[in-house]
Write a protein that binds this DNA or RNA. Structure first.
Lengths: 347, 347
DNA sequence: CGCCTGAGTGTGAACGGTCACATGGCCAAG
DNA sequence: CTTGGCCATGTGACCGTTCACACTCAGGCG
């Protein structure tokens, strides 16, 4: 009639071993095991060996959840991004992931789809939780920026991309998009084009690096700065932008906000009977894997997203552990010349 | 000289509020707060209101780490995948992420780069941890399959893709790739092609759905089954496969393992002076966003990766919470006819 | 010879939740 | 009027780890 007096929550037998089981097996206290796990110098090497043996024998793995609770913050990284599929975002994500995995760190992802206060707040709450660990905010766009600004100071976070307003001493790491865009624009001008049109991604503000670099180059050359065409992330809207540009007889060179946009623009020009690069030259941005195999192969700017991700990971861990900031070394963007650019028809 | 007797770890003042702070503010016990958080019916609505008010006032958010520790498993999802960038993987990942976020669930990612025992073990250890929560293994390839097989029974996990050997009652959800490949192959045969060549992704085994469907269709039509060309994930190797195929005069139709491969093959044919679809027809697989804008626009098979991800998420949560399995409804793959297929030149 | 120091180890408490069980009040049935 | 049971709530223990501090035992020095 009486219930078993020892009815624990889990069957104590086949349970996952804890630090105390290891301690018992090694004949030491749980604290000593903890010290071994954290490489404390205060352990006799003999004792250490015994503990490590017990760990091996029992197949013990420290609980990330318990650590996070005790430490106040998880030893891991959460990435906040507005997108996981677009190349720039995905490649940065991959860079972070590889760096994290190499060090045995956990990684989580949280997407912010809009910059609306409610969603930004949810995201901030999410990463404010102890189990989020260090935070990397991919702030290529308004969504990321909004999160960055709303983040409480006590959350260890870094930004990928330059902050619009230098943000309360938050570490920010960025690729030199301004220089990259200027290089691409100058390449087109050097080929003899009168000016260069620009089709921008939704992530670009007027002060964004890509747009600023393009404008810089045009102004330095003293040529007309055409109005920027904005389009969405979907290639369909890039196609529409391309259609419009193909009606403008004076358009001979286009700098596209990314390679996907270049693809849509190129097809629109094709459908309008314009040859690339014979009639119009096109430059993309990002160097996505397929762009070398298009017809024509795309001239574009290669960006070191993987390096950016890696640098962000390191900075986030430094922020999390309170250690000194190593200076990140990023590969500068480079213009990759292929088949989609040539002198304008008249030249 | 004496150290402050109450020097806690964190400054107790500005600390993040806990369930006990809320309890004090609402004038109830911490257990009652816990009950409110878990929608227990055993709380007077009046009391509930008071607690919710206190939660609001203090800006309290339950700690995921503490929950995971107490419950034994985190309320969240970890996705195991061999890749995060390739379209099929990334799109599935996105489907999972959206479903998880909609329910306020945490999401983590763990990549397995190889099927080597050491790496598989590390991955298994990683997701065995309580804080991993439910697990979705994207088992499109040998890496995923290896992890799935090595996963201890007590880890709540489901697979995306059919298990090679039905795996100890693990839930597995798959897209009907076999049917999809058969449809694509039949489309080419119906156009008059003698047979259809196949360039396979690294993920395909002989028994994979794509390869089996292709073979099915050829055998049903009673035509020759050419040797499968295997290539890597990089488009360069697809280009090489395309070069080889362009030397075979009898090749008039190619089913590519995915759209990226189709891109490489198409460029190789172009460089060899072969017209698509005039000389050779090409069908891709996946319907990546750009494929509608290529020249020629790619005929391909659209796959509902987002739906797959969503279904996997639901199944993983069901596994995690021990609830009944809802039957997942997946959109069947569909052949999207565009410009890259036509009757063979002789016909 | 006693005291101090420090290396090596152990004990208690805390992190923020949840579960099991105890308790008190109220109403209906005996 | 008692008793039994249910509803609403409270108390203690526990999840697995780390931190703060206490303790023991040697060795060096005054």
């Amino acid at each position: 009639m009486v219930v078993s007096p020892n009815s624990q929550r889990a069957p104590r037998s086949a349970a996952i071993p804890s630090i105390r089981d290891v301690a018992a097996a090694a004949g030491v206290s749980y604290q000593t095991v903890s010290r071994v796990l954290n490489d404390s110098p205060r352990v006799r090497s003999e004792t250490r060996t015994a503990v490590l043996g017990a760990i091996e024998r029992l197949g013990f793995r420290p609980s990330r959840a318990a650590r996070a609770l005790s430490l106040g913050r998880a030893r891991g990284i959460t990435v906040v991004t507005s997108n996981t599929v677009l190349y720039g975002y995905a490649a940065t994500l991959q860079g972070i992931e590889e760096a994290a995995r190499a060090e045995g760190m956990a990684m989580g992802i949280r997407v912010v789809e809009s910059a609306e206060p409610a969603e930004v707040k949810q995201t901030v709450d999410y990463v404010s939780d102890a189990s989020a660990g260090g935070v990397v905010v991919i702030a290529f766009d308004p969504m990321g920026t909004a999160v960055l600004e709303a983040l409480p100071e006590h959350v260890p976070a870094v930004a990928a991309a330059e902050p619009a307003a230098p943000d309360r001493g938050r570490v920010a790491i960025a690729l030199d998009e301004r220089r990259a865009a200027a290089d691409a624009t100058e390449h087109l001008l050097a080929l003899g084009h009168r000016t260069v049109h620009h089709v921008a991604t939704p992530s670009e503000g007027r002060s964004s690096g890509r747009q600023a670099g393009w404008r810089d180059a045009l102004e330095r050359a003293g040529v007309e700065v055409p109005e920027v065409l904005s389009c969405g992330w979907d290639i369909g809207s890039a196609y529409a932008a391309g259609q419009w540009l193909s009606t403008q007889a004076r358009t001979t060179a286009i700098l596209c906000g990314n390679d996907d946009i270049a693809q849509g623009v190129r097809r629109a020009l094709y459908d309008a009977g314009k040859d690339v690069p014979g009639d119009v030259s096109i430059v993309g941005f990002d160097d996505i894997p397929g762009s070398a195999y298009w017809t024509p192969a795309l001239t574009t700017v290669r960006m070191d997203f993987a390096g950016l991700g890696q640098a962000c990971y390191r900075a986030a861990v430094a922020e999390l552990t309170g250690q000194a900031q190593p200076v990140p070394v990023l590969v500068p963007p480079s213009l990759v010349l292929r088949e989609s650019t040539a002198p304008p028809p008249s030249a």
